[in-house]
């Protein structure tokens, strides 16, 4: 499996990173170097092997479903590049 310019453009769009036309070719080369190298995993027989989900065997902790914390609107907004009326502000999305 190898990626071409079109695939890089598609991934970059999914990742929401602007990549210029000039960079597509070199990026494809870099990604292919890495992907060719990880390809060696196909040598490993993993039939019947469960994928790792947690490195330490532990049950996820549970607690009663009740509000224990919160009410930090101003702190949450404090680092926002733009906020208005207690909300994050973004470029207009609806005409």
């Amino acid at each position: 499996m190898s990626v071409d310019k079109e695939t890089v453009a598609k991934i970059a769009n999914l990742a929401r990173i602007a990549v210029s036309e000039d960079e597509l070719e070199s990026t494809a080369g870099e990604l292919n170097n890495i992907l060719d190298w990880v390809e060696q995993l196909s040598e490993v027989d993993t039939d019947g092997v469960e994928p790792m989900t947690s490195v330490v065997a532990a049950a996820l902790p549970r607690r009663v479903d009740e509000v224990t914390d919160g009410g930090y609107r101003d702190q949450v907004l404090k680092n926002a590049p733009a906020s208005e009326h207690g909300f994050f502000a973004v470029p207009k999305v609806i005409e």
Binding site: N13, R16, A18, N79, A80, V90, P91, V93
Partner: peptide, 18 residues
């Protein structure tokens, strides 16, 4: 570019992200 740190303007919300 919404919650914290750097924001670089764009024509749309998606362009701003990118």
């Amino acid at each position: 570019g919404v919650k914290y740190g750097l924001r670089v303007a764009g024509d749309s919300l998606d362009d701003m992200y990118k």
